[in-house]
Design a protein around this nucleic acid. Structure first.
Lengths: 198, 198
DNA sequence: GATTTCTGCGACAGGTTGACGCACAAACCT
DNA sequence: AGGTTTGTGCGTCAACCTGTCGCAGAAATC
């Protein structure tokens, strides 16, 4: 073949793609997934409409790519004491979920995954990651003696992250530190904290 | 005015409206909110396209009306013992949330409420109802001596319903009875159940 | 039975969607 | 540097979808 065997991307193509993905994220955050259409994204990105069809020939893969780009830099590398580390991580996660962009991506992910197998795969990958990280933290806590008995990771992640999701996504509210403390006390009962809290 | 001063609705109009709302719910459940468009709903309902515009002149109010019709017949009238009653209610709620229609309406509600004030009002009304009911149950439990200290209703509803939402809507999974038991044990600590459970 | 009201139907302009060919600029390769 | 490849901007195009309208016929009301 001619030259670049897909080792590196043409800078012009990269620029356009980058600009359009950014524009798509802005539009998603400000006007919802219905606004993420080739025409609007191209206009927002300052790019010609035809370019959108050239980079994403199959229309709505654009939205899928946007959501595939969102990573979750949370709950990585558990550190002792696990409880304090977890408190910080949940704090960050809750703050991120309260972001307009995060709210939009989360609800869009849940929504479109219901009828789009590709997005469903992405959603499952994200929840799997989250569950695995929580479970890893739990294992560290048990090894360090901070936690007496392991729990079903499915239950644990639901009890820890579920309330954050409820507050931010359904109630459109914020999460205060007290709730996070409660969550950890309840879902992550320590040998010392037996009864109800302070 | 001529005859019916809006006391009763013309049966033909009622039939059309009913058929279209049903069709809209079916479409919402099977193909997402993007499919709930006047043309598709009319076709699904076996009604002419123009009729859609006659009944809902302002286009997308149809979807709003569909979501406004969804009631939540859960957690009403707390009964003692509150813990057992609550277990049953959360079981019903979790089963309902796992329904395709409920999944779609829930995610659509969260999604569109972000950029539609009318739907946001509806969402707030629903969460307010849920919170009030949980709080009422809590008060009954305290009065009956099943619960020692009241909690912030915001926290309580998040800790009880959040995990169900996480499991059904984000993980697209079901909720087993063990999780519900854990939730109640943790979020609704009884005087007898002090430490960790059985 | 007379009148009002709703629906089905076809038609209409307006806008949007993808696709195309072309010219030009940018990046690559030697 | 010069030649070549590659991507973009631009205008155009048919096809589709949207929202609106007037009209005729059926259904409901009085």
């Amino acid at each position: 073949m001619s030259r670049t065997d897909s080792a590196t991307e043409d800078p012009r193509r990269a620029r356009s793609r980058e600009a359009m993905v950014g524009a798509a994220m802005r539009l998603l955050a400000s006007a919802g997934p219905g606004a993420v259409t080739p025409a609007r994204v191209a206009a927002e990105a300052g790019v010609h409409r035809a370019t959108a069809y050239r980079l994403w020939p199959d229309a709505d893969k654009l939205l899928a790519e946007v959501m595939a780009e969102t990573e979750l830099p949370f709950l990585r590398d558990p550190v002792t004491p696990v409880r304090a580390w977890l408190r910080g991580c949940l704090r960050e996660l809750a703050d991120d979920l309260a972001t307009p962009l995060s709210r939009s991506t989360t609800t869009t992910l849940m929504q479109t995954a219901l009828h789009d197998a590709r997005v469903a795969t992405r959603r499952d990958a994200l929840t799997d990651t989250l569950r695995a990280r929580i479970d890893a933290a739990q294992n560290v806590a048990v090894a360090e003696g901070e936690l007496v008995d392991r729990q079903d990771p499915d239950h644990l992640v639901a009890m820890l992250v579920g309330p954050l999701l409820y507050r931010t996504t359904l109630e459109a509210a914020t999460v205060d530190d007290t709730l996070i403390d409660h969550l950890i006390d309840r879902a992550f009962p320590s040998p010392s904290t037996t009864g109800h809290k302070r």
